[in-house]
């Protein structure tokens, strides 16, 4: 046991496992119902990260917005900057699912990708 030991909530999926973090030189995670929880717990102990799901404007598509997300999680503290960079952006259909919309968003070395195909519809 060390003072830093704590309980956090895994947010990777709706199960919301309550993880116990045993923090020393190594971080031991307990209480996860799947292996994604181990990775989450380790990150949460030192540098919390979150995924950013949002939308950007899109032209000539079924909807005026294209859902996009960060390919991996970005530092929680950087989310405002990420949003700022996406706000002015406008892409044009067609777009393919998984296509990179912004590279290295807000200097996080994480890309923003499209969540779905969006065909051209004029």
């Amino acid at each position: 046991m060390s003072d830093e030991d704590r309980e956090v909530l895994c947010v990777r999926c709706p199960k919301g496992c309550r993880l116990k973090l045993f923090i020393d030189e190594n971080i031991v995670v307990k209480g996860q119902e799947c292996k994604l929880g181990v990775d989450y717990g380790k990150k949460e102990a030192r540098h919390p990260e979150r995924e950013v799901p949002t939308t950007v404007k899109i032209k000539n598509a079924r909807w005026p917005r294209l859902p996009v997300r960060s390919k991996k999680s970005v530092p929680l503290a950087k989310i405002d900057e990420v949003m700022e960079e996406l706000r002015g952006l406008k892409v044009e259909a067609p777009v393919k699912k998984g296509e990179v919309i912004v590279q290295n968003v807000a200097d996080t070395s994480v890309d923003i990708i499209a969540e779905r195909d969006m065909e051209r519809e004029v």
Partner: peptide, 19 residues
């Protein structure tokens, strides 16, 4: 539902709704 968190049980991946 453009947020992620779907599919962790079936596919072992955290997907968004559209994905």
């Amino acid at each position: 539902c453009i947020h992620e968190g779907f599919g962790t049980l079936l596919f072992d991946k955290s997907l968004s709704g559209p994905e």
